[in-house]
């Protein structure tokens, strides 16, 4: 039995117990699953990024007052109350880590991936960000500046990735498809026009 099967079994057993004991009602579980499957997740952040790439005035608002700019697009939820957005350029590459735990901007990016919460990522993203970036397939020019953001306190961070080359004529919806969760953590760039992870 794979570990995924074990987790699924354990979850089913817990769910049955909670329902049988009357602690949780079934629609509450459906509500939370729907929330994390459909309403909170990196598709929201991708919309924010694609809008910023398409609309310079929105981009200005996003960088100067990120929380309100994100709410403008309807993404208002817990763990998005106090946001910071940092912009990647050819000269500056930003990468986000929570060295103390797993803080993550749920409203725009959903729940953090397992590796983001792992001790090796939390330690090495801070102490050797360029090494971690290479492991994610991201090469940063020696002369560029790397900025690590440790979201240890109450602010939640999102990276505005650099708009890929050759995307001038693309619509906001087309651009959205190039924005990945990892690119908004800053461990990768946005996808290139061919939909591949850009080095």
């Amino acid at each position: 039995m794979t570990s995924d099967d074990e987790v699924a079994l354990r979850v089913r057993a817990l769910e049955s117990l909670l329902l049988e004991k009357g602690l949780v009602e079934a629609p509450a579980i459906d509500e939370i699953i729907d929330l994390f499957e459909n309403r909170l997740g990196p598709q929201n952040g991708a919309r924010v990024v694609a809008r910023a790439w398409s609309d310079p005035a929105f981009k200005d608002r996003l960088l100067s007052n990120p929380t309100d700019a994100i709410v403008e697009l309807g993404f208002e939820a817990v763990q998005g109350e106090d946001m910071v957005v940092v912009e990647n350029t050819a000269a500056v590459h930003n990468i986000v880590v929570c060295t103390l735990c797993s803080c993550f901007p749920w409203a725009t990016m959903g729940l953090p991936p397992v590796w983001y919460k792992s001790a090796p990522y939390r330690a090495r993203a801070a102490s050797d960000p360029r090494g971690v970036l290479v492991e994610f397939g991201t090469n940063i020019a020696a002369e560029a500046e790397v900025r690590v953001w440790d979201s240890n306190a109450e602010l939640r961070y999102m990276v505005l990735p650099e708009r890929p080359a050759g995307t001038d004529g693309m619509s906001e919806d087309e651009l959205m498809a190039l924005v990945t969760r990892d690119s908004m953590i800053g461990v990768t760039r946005a996808l290139d026009v061919g939909g591949e992870v850009a080095p």
Partner: peptide, 8 residues
Amino acid sequence: QDSLYIDL
């Protein structure tokens, strides 16, 4: 040129 920003 690299740096780390943290909220204190």
